[in-house]
């Protein structure tokens, strides 16, 4: 009896110390890992009957939760359709910008549909499917102190960015002297921006435009509507999960025939943007028109 207790306690302690020190001692693992794959193939998802999709829960009108607790928005509209056509139920996983890659690499979600901009660095870590929206960076500021350029920056002012977004990467790389005020969620960043923490907020131009339009009465303007290169937004899957990615690509192509993303735009984004931006934002059938 006594020995058993000792053994139990010992093994417990060993497991615990191993767990705590493991991240220090593992020497040669990067993103790749030997043995079992972390992702679930298309068949495994179908068999399970539920697909896990990572979306934003605080990024109105792309991914948010309404007052009845239901997920809504442009990304969610697409996610619903994806799951329906696959014949599975959808389980939404609320994600923050900085967690998106992590969630895919650790198999916590099957797909990320969280306004995920395609970049080269990200493409090394995850696999992107075909795009479904255009995006670039933008900067929103107050009317009475409109920011129209990032050159000759006054060092006492800061710019709000969200940790793990392309805006953060872009500003860190190209404007290292601009002080950044970093937040980990859309909700906190917007709250702080409204409270006057910083003079400007840099993010996807779709998002800053939506913010300016939704808060037009408070005097917000998008002083810089396009910054850096023009990019696209696409679903992402775990690196190597080809069955799932191919299926999504097929799906996007098929949906193009019925102009699905235009309908998505009209259902979720038109309230915010009006119809003026429909053709410039939406990418149909996975092919960007030049």
């Amino acid at each position: 009896m006594k020995n058993l207790k000792k053994f139990l306690a010992l093994s417990l302690a060993v497991v615990l110390t191993a767990g705590v020190t493991a991240c220090g001692s593992s020497s040669d693992n990067g993103s790749q890992k030997s043995g079992k794959e972390v992702y679930r193939t298309l068949d495994e998802i179908k068999e399970d009957g539920t697909i896990n999709i990572g979306v934003f829960s605080d990024k109105n009108p792309f991914g948010y939760v309404d007052e009845n607790g239901d997920y809504q928005g442009y990304d969610v509209y697409f996610a619903e359709r994806l799951a329906k056509d696959m014949g599975v139920k959808v389980n939404y996983v609320s994600t923050e910008a900085a967690n998106r890659i992590e969630y895919l690499q650790t198999g916590k979600v099957d797909v990320i549909l969280a306004n995920f901009t395609v970049t080269e660095e990200r493409a090394e870590e995850v696999d992107f499917a075909d795009p479904y929206m255009n995006v670039s960076l933008g900067v929103v500021s107050k009317e009475d102190n409109e920011i129209t350029t990032l050159d000759d920056w006054n060092k006492d002012d800061s710019v709000i960015v969200i940790s793990g977004t392309t805006a953060e990467t872009y500003l860190t790389k190209n404007y290292p002297d601009i002080p950044l005020q970093k937040f980990d969620s859309y909700a906190t960043a917007k709250e702080a921006f409204e409270n006057g923490t910083s003079v400007a907020w840099a993010n996807d131009n779709t998002e800053v435009l939506a913010f300016a339009l939704q808060n037009a009465d408070k005097g917000y303007v998008v002083g810089i509507p396009e910054l850096g290169s023009s990019d696209s937004i696409a679903p992402a899957v775990t690196k190597g999960n080809d069955t799932l990615r191919d299926w999504i690509n097929e799906e996007i192509k098929t949906l193009g025939e019925e102009q699905f993303f235009h309908a998505d735009y009209e259902a979720t984004l038109a309230d915010t943007y009006g119809l003026d931006y429909e053709d410039s934002l939406v990418v149909e059938g996975g092919k960007k028109s030049e």
């Binding site: 993103s31 910008a97 900085a98 967690n99 890659i101 992590e102 870590e125 940790s163 953060e168 980990d184």
Partner: peptide
């Protein structure tokens, strides 16, 4: 804490 979170989000070097 934020630095760690930020670096994970920027460069995906979790460990």
């Amino acid at each position: 804490m934020f630095t760690a979170k930020d670096l994970i989000g920027l460069y995906y070097k979790t460990i």
